[in-house]
Each structure stands twice: as structure tokens, then as C-alpha cells.
Design a binder for these strands. Sequence first.
DNA 1: TTACGATAAGGAACGGGGTTCCGTTTTGGC
DNA 2: GCCAAAACGGAACCCCGTTCCTTATCGTAA
Lengths: 195, 195
Amino acid sequence: MNEGGSGRAAPRKRADARRNERTLLDAAAAVFVTSGVEAPVRDVAARAGVGVATIYRHFPTRADLIIAVYRHQVEACAEAAPTLLASGATPHAALGRWINLFVDFLVTKHGLAAVLRSDDAGFDTLHAYFLDRLVPACAQLLEAAAAAGEIRPDVDAYELMRGVGNLCIGADNDPRYDARRLVELLIAGLRLPHR
Amino acid sequence: MNEGGSGRAAPRKRADARRNERTLLDAAAAVFVTSGVEAPVRDVAARAGVGVATIYRHFPTRADLIIAVYRHQVEACAEAAPTLLASGATPHAALGRWINLFVDFLVTKHGLAAVLRSDDAGFDTLHAYFLDRLVPACAQLLEAAAAAGEIRPDVDAYELMRGVGNLCIGADNDPRYDARRLVELLIAGLRLPHR
DNA sequence: TTACGATAAGGAACGGGGTTCCGTTTTGGC
DNA sequence: GCCAAAACGGAACCCCGTTCCTTATCGTAA
């Protein structure tokens, strides 16, 4: 009875280490909800009842902790793309719904959009993960919509994802700013004038 | 012969203080160009050959220094709005050109867009200044374009400025990301389907 | 020209945050 | 139960914005 029997590569961690990893993920998730993604590392450590070094032992950088916390949701978002495409709606409608999923994800995570856009070297792995996972999903939708003649054919998935992410920055804590609305306008701007 | 004879409110600063203020503005401008707007205060002080406290004496917060450095260009941008409106083009074309001015300003100032969007309390005066100055200019263009039936009538100037500013974040140092293009798409999304 | 008070300067000091180091504790195979 | 390896905790370090306190400079008036 190894760990799920998936392989022998990982030498299996000690029991306390596994326990702490879970505890840390839960603590981080809780702190991120109340204080935002950029909450001090010390806060997460305190909430988990561990020392700061324990965080860095499990997650080499802040970015890795954030990735671990949100991995499930990012995966779900990526996997939603083909599902939406196959759901019968037009490709443009599927694109719109998928973008909405992404926007909802971002605006409900305080500060995540800002971190996603940070050019701090420490967040490179975070950028890479999000882009690797989501850009292909977005590209699939864009290609389908372009092939159907619904949108301009020259829209780059990377650029669009970056733009949408940027529009979501600061969408929390500012009642006068509605990121969803602006993203809708941006997506509307993609449409070809149908004639 | 007072200082320009505008009034007696300011007790006139000492000569060295005036000299240092100029020196600081020049140094800050130079440092911002090479290291970005978020360059360490100490770098600006070193470049100007003064102590850090001197910066804070002249500019109570980082934000005030940034405002002072870019004040001229922000004013010019704000004043361009009525000029463009009166220039004979359609209101929507004037809006497009004005937005381009704003975007060009932002993307050529490393990190300024990011700071403009920061929710750090220290940058409140910076936000207030930019918004106070530019939102009315933008609103004037939006109203004209809406009145001409060229764009949707329910677009808020504040929201649009925030959105455009957000789209400009990180536009430098990423050749795959073209903020101008995305902003164009966003502006295109404002148009009413003309029928 | 010099002396003196007000103004401004300089740099050390403080506080906060990310990251690392090292002595100590816990675990798990023998 | 013993011991080496693994993991832990928190102090330590570094960077950065901001403030404080001492020193230097300016400008004026004798």
C-alpha cells in the first residue's frame, strides 16, 4: 500500500510532512479569502500553526503555494473549454461563457489578478502555470469561433487572456468598477460585423 | 519681484531648497525611465546626490513625486480632449485618438499603469489626481459620442479609464502583449451596431 | 563682515515583509 | 528503545518605504 500506487519516483514523505502540507493548503486558502492572495507569508504560517520555513519547505516560493491552492479551479476552468464547445451553443457563445468562468474565478480571489500580472520574478512559475493551462483552452475556443466566421481571425489567445486578466485587476473593493462589463465589451469588440 | 508675483501665500523657499526640488524632479524622471516608476526611493536620492529625507521633505509621499514628474503630460492629455472634439472629426474618432494619447502615455512609463491601479493607500493622492484630471476629459468625449449615437449611452468614464489603464499594465517588457490593440478592441466594443 | 536663528539636509534608525539558516524535535526503520 | 534522517520553528538577514535627530547651510541684520 504505497501512496495510491502511481509509481516509485517519490520516496514518500514522512507522515507529519504530509499532514502539514494539507494544513498549509487549508490555512492558505482561508487566509487568501480574508486577506487576499498577497497576504504575508507569516500570516499563513501563523494560521496553520507552523513556522515560516515549513511553508518554504513545501512550496519553494509563494507562487507555488498559490498554484497549489487554486490548481483544482484552474484545471476545472481549462477543462470547461471543450465541454462548452461541445455543448451545442455557437463557438462565440461558448467563448463568452468560458471567459465568464475565468473572470468569475479571478474576481472572487482577492488580488489574484494583480499577482497574475506582476512582473516579479518570483511569480514566473505562477504565470507559466496559468498560461500553460489556460491559453490552449482559450485558443481552442478562439479558433472555433474564427472558423465559424464569428470573430476576427487575428486574435491571439495569449494576448486575450492577458487582457482579460488585466481587466480583472482591482475588480474587488471598487463598486464603481465592473470587470465583467468591460470584459463583455472587449469580447463584443472581437466580433466581425456580420453582414 | 516675488516669485512671478502670483500671490503672497507661499513664504518663498530657500534657494537651496528650490535647487534641490528641480534636481530631484530631474533625477526622478531619469530613474523612472531606466528603472521604472517603482524604483527604490534611495535610487532617486542617490541619483540626485541628496539624502532620502530630502525627497520626503519636498514630496510627502512617493505618489507626490510621481505626480510632480508627470504633471505636465497629464495636463496636456486632459487638455487635448476638447481640442480633439473641436477638431472636426466625429466624436467617436476624437475619443479613439484621445484614448490613444492616454495609452501611449501609459505604456511609455514603465510601471506607471501598475501603480495607477495599485490599491496601496500610499498612492491615493496619485489615483485622485489622475482621475480628477482625466475622468472629466473622458466623460466629455463619451457624452459627445453618445449624443451623436455612435456608442452605447451607458458607458461610465471612470470605468472606462480604469479599464484602459488596466489594459496597459505590463505592456512594456512583453512583446507578445500589445495593449494598444486590446484597447482598440475595447473601444470597438463600445460602438452601437449602426443600422 | 560676522553672528545668529530659521530652514533644510543627511544618514542612521524603525517597521514590515520575503527568504534563509541553524539548532532542536519528530519520525520510522532496525 | 536507538539513532540517523527528515522535518520543524523561529530567529536572522536583506530590501524597501518612511521617520527622527543631529548637523550644515542660508539669509538677514548688526
